[in-house]
Design a binder for these strands. Structure first.
Lengths: 193, 193, 193, 193
DNA sequence: GATGAATGAGAGTTCATTCAT
DNA sequence: AATGAATGAACTCTCATTCAT
């Protein structure tokens, strides 16, 4: 009789994305999320520990799916160059097609206190590691210079993509995010070689 | 003969950097700043409209000095390549030597509501424009390829530096930020050519 | 089966009358009202928008009941003279039996900002109109002179009663307010004829 | 060299009437009064003990002049009837010609805490006594009935005039206050006889 | 599991008043 | 006498969280 467990969990998460994207994390009240989700305030606390937990769960949810899907796309690529291109393509395409998620990822997520960052940094680290794996692979494949500092390269790559997304989120979005793939790739790829 | 003018203003600003860096913007109470500054709570409101105003003033203060000093260093450079190197060097060196300011710039500043972002984006735009000028100059000097998209290049450059700084701020800082200048520069410069 | 609805609303209103009468509107803190009502501070804001709203609701509450009851008593009167006598009697009797309400009505209510007076003047206007109706009736019944200015007569009647009440409230109340009915009536009635 | 003492006292008082009438007692800050008077905030405290003292001084100032002038006009009257007419006339004429003072007298003055009311009630009592003297005189002159309760009659008379003024102050003043003298007098005089 | 009324700690802000100059 | 920068007590209102139903 009861609908499948976890349904409300997702309903609340979806409502949270909308309200966070609309009003920002700090301006959003838990009752706003509950209202948007069509549940009582107290119900939110059955599925989440507190307000911050919602934001973190949101991000973990998004990032896990993000990395998982990205990984499955990467297996089709032949070499590191193709993989790097795919990463940029996938990153821009995914966030570009979900402006609300993009806003939460780029803006709202950075509004929470440092101590709880662990919940955020863990899924993010998986993504970082994935990028670093590709760089290492490129070095093994002799595509990238052997003295390349993998860690720094990862920061540069991620930072570049991230900034491109943030600028797009903050703008009135008069252009498609995905179309920036080529220019960004061109700028980054030669630095690695 | 007392140098009253602006004295307290700066004292409060200095206290704010410390407290924001220590506890974060949202966790800092106005009375904490006042206490750190050695003034009464009400005094803060003689010099600033509200808490947010302090954070914004802080950033404008920092950024104006940042861009001004950077500009004066750039005149000594011969070509766009040297200028770009100088930008990266100056950016990393400056924030690397002021960890408290760096934390406020990289973390706390991103905690305020979007609507008031104008106070933040304006001084930032000046910096963006400066980077774009250098890129344009490099194109005129035939150092960078003519089909390079200046705007995207700027985002990639700024995003890369910014991410490098953020990672350093979030870390326990076991390395000097300035020493990343060469690897970052090497990664970016070839993408422009 | 619990008669929850509106229960706390009234409890808070009752507590507000007491505290306003005791300490005055401006000297009363919302937490005082909450304490007197036996609820948390925040609960007050579930039922009222703000402190001023409590005072206004209080008055509307009182005045609505006042006019309603007065109206029901007036139907028993034969002519305008009897009705006027009843008005004076009822006004003095009602406030005379509720010194706390009287103090709020005569003193505290006049402490709020003009702009929000609408909430106050509306129920008061109902009372004014009722008095004017009786005067008009008296003119139709040829009890009062036809050239009598109804509006001015109402002001004189209400002002007289109101002042009598105010003096009583401000005094140590060594006399019963109701016993002033006859002298006041005698003074007013002949002016109308 | 110093201008005559008390000059600033009056300047501040004049500024207070304006600001109180404009914004109301509680909404007026001491710095507003000082600004309007063209003096420093601290200067206000050389001439007055505190904010309330300003309001009270204001009223005493007004009332003393009021009663004094009224008294001097009354000596020209032949009997109690003429005197009562003069009182009503003078009261309405005076306040009707000074809307700002009227607003302070009718509205703002009633906003202060009871305990300090002595400063207000004393000069008011002088006015009350003056009215009662006229009533007593009328009784002695056999113009008014001997069983008339002087105290109550005074309350009725003052309350009536006061209400007429208050209604005018609260209105957009589309009529002259002075023109209400006759209707008010007609209404009151017969009640005394 | 679901509800939503109730809680109460918490913080930003105001402004009357003071006092060193 | 005059100034006005500085003070700091005071107070309203918000909202994340709880828990009896």
């Amino acid at each position: 009789m009861t609908k499948r467990s976890g349904e409300k969990h997702q309903v609340i998460l979806d409502a949270a994305v909308k309200t966070f994207a609309r009003a920002g994390y700090h301006r959003t009240r838990v009752s706003d999320i509950a209202g948007e989700a069509g549940v009582a305030d107290g119900t939110v606390y059955i599925y989440f520990n507190n307000k911050e937990d919602i934001l973190i769960s949101l991000f973990q949810n998004i990032m896990n799916r993000f990395v998982e899907e990205l990984r499955s796309e990467l297996v089709l690529c032949r070499d590191a160059n193709e993989k790097l291109e795919k990463i940029i393509d996938y990153h821009l395409r995914t966030l570009g097609s979900k402006p609300e998620q993009a806003r939460v990822t780029q803006i709202e997520l950075r509004q929470i206190d440092q101590k709880i960052n662990e919940g955020i940094s863990k899924p993010l680290l998986t993504y970082f590691r994935l990028i670093e794996e590709v760089i290492e692979e490129g070095k093994k494949q002799a595509l990238y210079r052997p003295d390349l500092d993998t860690r720094t390269a990862r920061k540069v790559i991620f930072g570049a993509i991230d900034e491109v997304v943030t600028c797009w989120v903050m703008s009135s979005k008069p252009y498609s995010l995905a179309e920036l793939k080529n220019p960004v790739f061109d700028l980054l790829i030669r630095g690695l070689q």
